[in-house]
Design a binder for these strands. Structure first.
Lengths: 138, 138
DNA sequence: TTATATATTTGCAATGGTTTCAGAAATGAA
DNA sequence: TTCATTTCTGAAACCATTGCAAATATATAA
């Protein structure tokens, strides 16, 4: 859990004015171990911030993604979700329960890809799908 | 280039009746080095198959994906495209020109991911983004 | 403080890719 | 041929996302 004060400073450093809504959304995504969709973020903060609109959630998440503060996942093509952790890691989606899990990746994993010479890589996503241990047993 | 006869047999083996439309769509996606969207497939085959509908293209592509004959890429969340090559390879999307390129991956690249024990993995996609050599120079 | 400008949020309507639907056409079996 | 099944089609529905313009909040200047 990161404190609000720290998150506030991080937003300011990124040149984003920390409004009440922005801070709440940032805190939620950053401290969530889940990988919430815009809809989920909206539902979660709806009570706390009575007047919050879904549009604001979409706009704000996009703002954060563009600033590199969070990342957007498209592991499942039917929805987009967000991850407050921008460090290098793979995502696994369970085909049965729908849970998304994080897994660390060794730093030089791009050496496994052939012919990348001359390419300027700004983003890398490794998406895995299958069955998680719980669902696999059934 | 794979012949129609071979493609026809492959469809039959997969339990899919090789109708004129299906065969044409299968041939197009398999023999395309691009990564066409449903829309592109439709436009390309529109003349050859006058009566083809976009719905049929969507249905058919989905049918092929479910049968494991082709794969769907969601490297760019704003559109879905298809790849007739199901072998293990990474995809790179150029942020400037929008071109999607293929790159081979070493077989044991999943060894770079930590903690996968107990997981049953059915699919793995590595999506890279950045700038291709041409666009990088500018 | 008040006035003014700028930034942010909101609600609603529109967008557009995708899917669904029911009927029509084609196909295969008997 | 007839019947059942599969496949195809066009139109309509769906729904996450975005665009827009008005409303609100915040910062700056006077």
């Amino acid at each position: 859990m990161v404190s609000r004060a720290e998150l506030k400073e991080e937003l300011t450093k990124a040149g984003i004015r920390p409004s009440v809504q922005r801070l709440a959304i940032f805190e939620y995504v950053r401290n969530s171990c889940q990988h919430p969709t815009a809809e989920v973020v909206y539902e979660a903060l709806h009570d706390e911030l009575g007047s919050l609109s879904l549009t604001t959630v979409y706009n704000t998440l996009k703002l954060f993604v563009d600033a590199g503060l969070i990342q957007m996942l498209t592991i499942d093509d039917t929805f987009r979700c967000f991850d407050g952790d921008c460090s290098n890691h793979a995502h696994f989606l369970c085909n049965r329960c729908g849970k998304i899990m994080d897994f660390g990746i060794k730093k030089d994993f791009l050496s496994m890809v052939e012919g990348l010479e001359g390419l300027e890589i700004t983003d890398a996503q490794l998406y895995l799908k299958g069955f998680c241990p719980k669902c696999s047993k059934k």
